[in-house]
Design a protein around this nucleic acid. Structure first.
Lengths: 325, 325
DNA sequence: CTAGGTGCAAATAATTTGCAGAGGC
DNA sequence: GCCTCTGCAAATTATTTGCACCTAG
């Protein structure tokens, strides 16, 4: 249904003809995880017997880049490397100069700082590259750390879930607290309902996380791929703090709306920008979830306002009682 | 006293011999501002008549890289470029794919996020590269923006001064406010004194800034080189906020100490990491300034504590009066 | 005099291209 | 049959190197 083969098929440029050799090169390439040089690929092909000319390898690599199946990367070694673009989120590189392995990561914090720089210059970005050249932990300490050669796709899904779970948890804290603070009975119920939903959803996410771990027991201990520190985790945390400072019912709803909107925007923005993958789906589903919560809160906010107005009409002197401090 | 020639002299590798040709190549290279390819340099040499072989250019470029006079950069064009390392702070690149010009910037915010990523991986950094490939404003809109071909050194000095001035201003706001809030007479005096110092120093910095602008009237309108948003500007701002929340005398001093320490550490850290230059000096002098303020505040804090203790001995019942809310 | 430094031409190394034949549609 | 794909060998591009000669210390 959504195999590499289908993916390649879907991206085959118009007018291009089928060829067993090319298919074989593409398949061989997509079966690898790392960043291959043209020569690496030649070696792989030769090992699998097939006798394919170097020129064809080069031509096919270019063909894959044009079809967005592969991406050319340059680590400054005087030759190009290629990494798969299929189900592979965009990322930055840590490059070990000792063992020549490379590690991928993505930081939304860095990306947004970079956005600011770029914007201030009126620059239009086509591609941003970050490369950290140095020595990896294994080469430096000799300690045989765990095998880092996992697929980035899985790491990405893991970290997407982690971010979602962290957000969900702080959301739960927020609603639990808000439900305690709010005076208005209906408002309280809305917050309780949301707290409940967060709990349910949290369980769902946790289950998904556990399933992912089951596929690869070492996954949990692999180093982080996503660095989304500033963005996702802090959103509800600041809301909780604001609640603690003491707020009226309307304010509590407004804070909730702001948090959900921030959360939604964040997950939507990143979800949209990723390649199709489990991680992308997690981001977009979560964005949706947050959107629904936000809508619910907005509706409740409107209803509360309406009740305040009508109450004010009935008992003008005590109109503001529901939002007393 | 500190000319490029002296600089080159100081870095001449042991055992290397003088040579008119090499000197000429080095001088020609250092007279340029941009990112030259070996061929660019050959063209420049040829234009100035001298007949020097390509091989010598390559050998001399390598010699300059070894001597840390030049730095090799790779923009993925299939050939190397070289930029001067003399009085040139480390930086990242925006690269226009249309006009092939490149722009430099530095962001402490991005650098510290990168530090976190690197640390979490146990990685040892040798060199970090950030390249944003895209289209520059001029190529995109056709509008002939101001000439961007200024020396980065001057931009760096300008921005270092801007950061220092911004910090100084928020420091002034902090001390002015603190002087108003504090009860203890001696503490008040210290804060007033510091506010006064900030004012004087602010005037000095402003004068230096004006002098710099006088050297190049367009400098003020050139795009930013340093992006130090999070770091420098926010330090005292948070202190001012804390003051507003209401604090006792000791707390006010402690906040001041924290701000000055943060400020000192920041300017020291970056000042130390830069190449010798006006910008570096600004950073280090400012770091020193902040250190002195910090020491003053620490001394005052100790003195205040001592007075509180002795007061407590004399009038045990009212001992805590100087720090009443 | 001796270790560099320089020029020239040849060597490398990664990649591209021209051209003739093979093969998919 | 036409147009694309492939192989091979030659070309290209940036850079390096061997070797004979030159020059500073």
């Amino acid at each position: 249904m959504d195999s590499p083969a289908d993916f390649v098929e879907s991206r085959r440029p118009a007018g291009s003809k089928r060829s067993g050799k090319r298919d074989f090169i593409v398949d061989t390439f997509l079966a690898q995880t790392g960043h291959l040089t043209a020569d690496d690929l030649v070696a792989l092909i030769r090992k699998a017997d097939s006798r394919i000319s170097r020129a064809t390898i080069y031509r096919t690599l270019q063909w894959m880049v044009d079809a967005k199946i592969a991406q050319k990367v340059d680590f400054g070694e005087g030759r190009s490397r290629y990494e798969r673009a299929y189900r592979h989120p965009r990322h930055f590189h840590l490059i070990c100069e000792a063992c020549h392995r490379s590690f991928e990561f993505l930081s939304s914090d860095i990306e947004s700082m970079l956005d600011e720089v770029v914007e201030s210059r009126g620059f239009e970005v086509h591609k941003a590259t970050i490369q950290v050249h140095g020595t990896c932990e294994r080469c430096r300490t000799g300690s045989s750390t765990r095998d880092d050669e996992g697929s980035t796709e899985r790491l990405f899904a893991r970290d997407a879930l982690r971010v979602a779970i962290a957000t969900e948890k702080s959301g739960l804290a927020f609603y639990t607290r808000a439900a305690r603070i709010v005076r208005d009975a209906r408002g309280k119920q809305v917050f309780l309902k949301l707290a409940d939903e967060e709990k349910t959803h949290l369980a769902t996410l946790q289950k998904r996380y556990d399933e992912l771990l089951a596929e690869d027991p070492q996954l949990d201990s692999r180093p982080a791929f996503l660095f989304f520190k500033g963005a996702a985790n802090g959103i509800f945390a600041s809301g909780v703090e604001e609640l603690a400072a003491g707020v009226d019912d309307r304010k509590a709803l407004l804070i909730g709306i702001r948090c959900e909107r921030g959360s939604h925007k964040f997950f939507k923005k990143y979800g949209d920008r990723f390649e199709d993958s489990e991680g992308k789906r997690i981001f977009l589903e979560f964005a949706d979830e947050e959107k629904q919560h936000m809508d619910l809160l907005v509706a409740e906010f409107k209803a509360l306002n309406a009740r305040i107005v009508s109450a004010r009409k009935r008992r003008p002197s005590q109109a503001r009682s529901t939002q007393a401090r």
